[in-house]
């Protein structure tokens, strides 16, 4: 059963909002979600809806983190497991596992895509001056799609650049990088 926890329709003014996270000027609202006890943030205007986990249809010959596709009111939406995407340990999907449906920009136009995350936590206001540059995480996490770090109630939130993160070619490229990285770490062990 589909459980719509919250719906943040953002059809209007999408063009203004989608010009990336504006690091200058006024603050922006971010939706934060939890992944392996870390908080991540996505720009709230990109979020189309948040829905509970429902079984998806697997697509053959795609990377493992590509869970499959889902019927979202007649549109076929690809679903990405963010834990697998970030090479985190897999966990069983629970009732609080949610899919954040986002609209992302790519060369071919706007796409709708779903992210499977552990849970959704909060909406935070982040003003531009509170966003700090991303430190080098080393090999475990590619920082290319982290726009910056923000602090909210003593917690650190990693702000994702969803366009970069989810453009398909990038995903394939990144998958190779992370594969290579995982190989390296195994060697080190």
């Amino acid at each position: 059963m589909t459980t719509n926890i919250a719906t943040a329709q953002s059809t209007n003014d999408m063009s203004d909002a989608t010009d990336g996270v504006k690091l200058e000027g006024e603050g922006t609202q971010f939706l934060t979600f939890i992944l392996d006890n870390e908080a991540y943030g996505v720009e709230i205007l990109r979020v189309q809806e948040i829905k509970g986990w429902t079984p998806v249809t697997r697509i053959p010959n795609t990377p493992e983190y590509m869970q499959g596709v889902l019927n979202l009111r007649g549109t076929i939406v690809p679903i990405v497991d963010m834990r697998m995407r970030f090479n985190l340990e897999r966990i069983e999907y629970t009732p609080i596992t949610v899919i954040i449906v986002l609209s992302v920009k790519s060369e071919t136009g706007e796409r709708v895509i779903g992210l499977v995350v552990d849970s959704v936590s909060d909406v935070i206001d982040v003003s531009a001056k509170d966003i700090k540059a991303t430190p080098d995480f080393g090999t475990t996490l590619n920082t290319e799609f982290i726009n910056g770090l923000a602090t909210s109630a003593e917690h650190m939130v990693m702000l994702l650049d969803v366009d970069k993160l989810l453009s398909v070619d990038e995903m394939t490229a990144l998958a190779q990088i992370s594969d290579a990285n995982s190989d390296v770490s195994i060697d080190e062990d």
């Binding site: 053959p60 010959n61 795609t62 549109t75 076929i76 690809p78 796409r111």
Partner: peptide, 13 residues
């Protein structure tokens, strides 16, 4: 329905 709209072309599908 197209897969390409939101994802990409998959060979064989």
């Amino acid at each position: 329905k197209s897969l390409e709209v939101n994802y990409k072309r998959i060979v064989g599908i």
